[in-house]
């Protein structure tokens, strides 16, 4: 019988190693006299500061009897009175003279801080690029296995060029050259560069997936009278899709991580937001650890979703 490792012992070893790593991070930060100030990061995640509500013009405030709304009568009678009823703290009193820009009240509603806004941007550009990468990659992958020389070699050239040049350079080309020629905004240029880049890898994954399906499947489908497209759609691609899920998940995770490069064309994604917040807080360690954790949340939930999908598709195995 094969010897099984002592579970308890090796879990202990694992724990010891993890604790050791954590402790050495602590020691390292102490050795450079770094003071951790995690609380500084919080306002950049979620901003809970009261927000001022300002008067748009000079006038007189009048508070309703229930105290739930305040209206400002303009000195200039041509302008209609301005009514505010969404606030949490009133600053003015009934009958007060108000000047333009005065704070009438404050609101306590929570807003996303810059880091979370960056996260939303990263999520947005990743999802858009992912969808286009899959669509483009599917067609390029199909062209790769086509017997038509034009399709085959065009797709091969595309894949080789895109895989052979750095993404950073491609983003610059898309933004400064193609973006200028076609008049694309930053987001479109960035998303297009990411899609084109990821699509080349997706195409290769799909090609290998298609080629991993035994030729007999296509033959059986064709022998039943299906044309090439029907055989692909009903028989080959569904099976290939299942087999390509694990490498596809890896590619999608790469896409999310690669999206950090669009910060070079001034798209305020998670990475760029992190850089901006660092210069405002002087807390680089905390900010970058937070940013890393947020990326991990994105990629982690993606791989979790793909795992779920794999499980659901495994019913025919």
């Amino acid at each position: 019988m094969e010897k099984t490792p002592n579970k308890l012992l090796w879990h202990g070893v694992l724990l010891a190693i993890l604790l050791g790593v954590g402790y050495s991070v602590l020691l390292a930060s102490q050795s450079i006299q770094y003071t951790w100030r995690w609380e500084r990061v919080v306002p950049y995640l979620v901003n809970t500061e009261p927000r001022p509500v300002m008067s748009p013009f000079d006038g007189v405030a009048s508070i309703s009897t229930d105290g739930l709304s305040v209206s400002i009568e303009s000195d200039n009678s041509a302008e209609p009175a301005q009514v505010f009823n969404e606030f949490s703290q009133l600053v003015v009193g009934d009958g007060d003279m108000i000047f333009e820009g005065d704070v009438v009240a404050t609101t306590n509603d929570w807003r996303l801080g810059p880091i979370m806004n960056g996260l939303v941007m990263t999520l947005k550009i990743s999802i858009v690029s992912l969808i286009f990468a899959v669509i483009i990659g599917l067609f390029v992958g199909l062209a790769r296995v086509s017997s038509n020389p034009a399709l085959k070699y065009l797709s091969l050239i595309y894949v080789e060029i895109v895989r052979g040049t750095p993404l950073l350079v491609q983003i610059f080309i898309f933004y400064f050259f193609i973006g200028t020629v076609l008049g694309l905004d930053r987001f479109t240029a960035g998303a297009a560069a990411l899609s084109i880049f990821a699509a080349a890898y997706v195409a290769e994954i799909i090609r290998s997936g298609i080629q991993s399906i035994p030729a007999g499947q296509m033959e059986a489908a064709r022998s039943l009278g299906m044309n090439y497209a029907q055989a692909m759609i009903y028989i080959v691609l569904p099976q290939a899709f299942k087999r390509t899920l694990p490498p596809m998940a890896g590619q999608f995770i790469n896409l999310i991580k690669d999206s950090s490069l669009v910060s070079v064309i001034s798209i305020t994604d998670l990475t760029k937001a992190g850089r901006e917040v660092v210069s405002g807080t002087f807390a680089p360690f905390e900010v970058w650890f937070t940013v890393a954790l947020l990326y991990l949340v994105l990629t982690g939930s993606l791989s979790w979703m793909v795992k779920l999908l794999e499980k659901r598709l495994a019913n025919s195995d």
Partner: peptide, 22 residues
């Protein structure tokens, strides 16, 4: 040829059933 193949059924040595379908 697709019309013609509808007339001609084929059974393979390796079955070639579609594994993702019942």
């Amino acid at each position: 040829i697709n019309k013609l193949r509808e007339e001609v059924g084929m059974v393979f040595q390796g079955f070639n059933l579609f594994p993702h379908m019942s």
